[in-house]
């Protein structure tokens, strides 16, 4: 008697009530147009993302050197990473330190700056947006930081500190394990106003201005109240988007770190999980273990994302 309680979901022809399967088929037929809309994307996405990811997951249970066919080894790659690979554990530790600092900071910076910018008039707003966003499209120019933090006296930072007598001899910013992570974090934060920042700006633009006028009438007295009662609830979808971008960005960082501190870095002090993955995949050609790292990283990020989502769901409710 479930059918009686079920309200009709769509205008699907309910002429052949053959239980759940028949009803599902009816629904699918009724939503034909929706499937047509996602078809081009779905096809390409399956081909170029879903299948390769599943192949990589399968490879994580094999020994695969890219020349001989993969050989099934069960959990061996995973066990090896956790039990006999000290560097992997260093990489995990570094990645967490890095992600816990840069993830939330880049997220809050992206939102705060987008929110600040939204307060400005259009012309000046465009100028500030460009200035803040420019580092994330600087491409090769970000290598200027290796000159700034260069370990000899010609590095800008050392040159400056030596000139003012703050330090007596040049600091090895990018090779001394003591400073390496700090410098990397500064550089990555410098580049952090990127995708989420732009999404937040566009999202804030889209909020109906009559909501704010109504809020003012209803007794909103300052910008914080406005932020918490009107803006944040309206922005929930974008906030989730930004959170996922920050999580993936901070946990998969390697592309900006390796050019700064070298590969491998001194004492592996700048070694991240993805750097370790690149080590296995591109240097040692052990794709099985590289894939196992990708799976572990994936599960970690999914866990973190679930946890963050619980927080965001509470927002403004």
């Amino acid at each position: 008697m479930r059918t009686a309680a079920e309200k009709p979901l769509s205008s699907a022809p309910q002429s052949r009530p053959e239980g759940r399967l028949g009803r599902l088929w009816g629904e699918i037929k009724a939503n034909k147009i929706s499937y047509l809309f996602i078809a081009p994307y779905g096809l390409l996405f399956t081909l170029f993302t879903v299948i390769p990811v599943f192949v990589a997951i399968a490879l994580s249970f094999t020994n695969y050197n890219m020349i001989q066919p993969p050989k099934f080894v069960g959990w061996a790659n995973y066990l090896r990473l956790f039990l006999s690979d000290d560097v992997f554990l260093i990489a995990v530790k570094n990645t967490f330190v890095f992600a816990i600092i840069t993830g939330p900071l880049s997220y809050f910076a992206s939102f705060l700056y987008a929110w600040f910018i939204n307060e400005l008039r259009p012309k000046i707003r465009a100028v500030f947006t460009l200035m803040l966003y420019a580092p994330s499209i600087s491409g090769a120019l970000f290598m200027i930081w290796t000159v700034m933090f260069s370990g000899d006296a010609y590095g800008y930072v050392n040159g400056f500190l030596l000139y003012w007598g703050i330090i007596k001899e040049p600091v090895q910013w990018l090779t001394d394990p003591k400073y390496m992570m700090g410098v990397v974090i500064i550089v990555v934060l410098w580049m952090s106003l990127g995708t989420s920042f732009l999404a937040f700006i566009a999202g804030l633009q889209g909020i109906d201005s009559s909501l704010y006028e109504a809020g003012a009438v209803d007794g909103i007295r300052n910008r914080w109240q406005e932020l918490f009662y009107i803006t944040l609830p309206q922005m929930r979808g974008y906030l989730m988007f930004g959170a996922i971008m920050s999580i993936t960005g901070s946990f998969t960082a390697a592309a900006q770190i390796i050019p700064l501190v070298g590969f491998p870095s001194t004492d592996y002090a700048g070694h991240t999980i993805v750097a370790h993955l690149i080590d296995y995949g591109n240097v040692r050609f052990e794709m099985g273990t590289a894939s196992a790292i990708a799976v572990i990283l994936f599960l970690t990020m999914v866990g973190v994302q679930r946890w963050v989502q619980r927080f965001l769901n509470k927002l403004g409710t």
């Binding site: 979901l9 929706s34 499937y35 809309f37 995949g281 990708a294 990020m301």
Partner: peptide, 28 residues
């Protein structure tokens, strides 16, 4: 549109953002 599989499909797209590209190069 709400249709069977829509949430599932979107979920997969979001999850795919979290899989390291470096290892999908070969199957790709």
């Amino acid at each position: 549109h709400k249709f069977p599989g829509s949430n599932f499909f979107f979920g997969i797209v979001v999850l795919s953002l979290m899989f390291a590209r470096e290892v999908t190069n070969i199957p790709n």
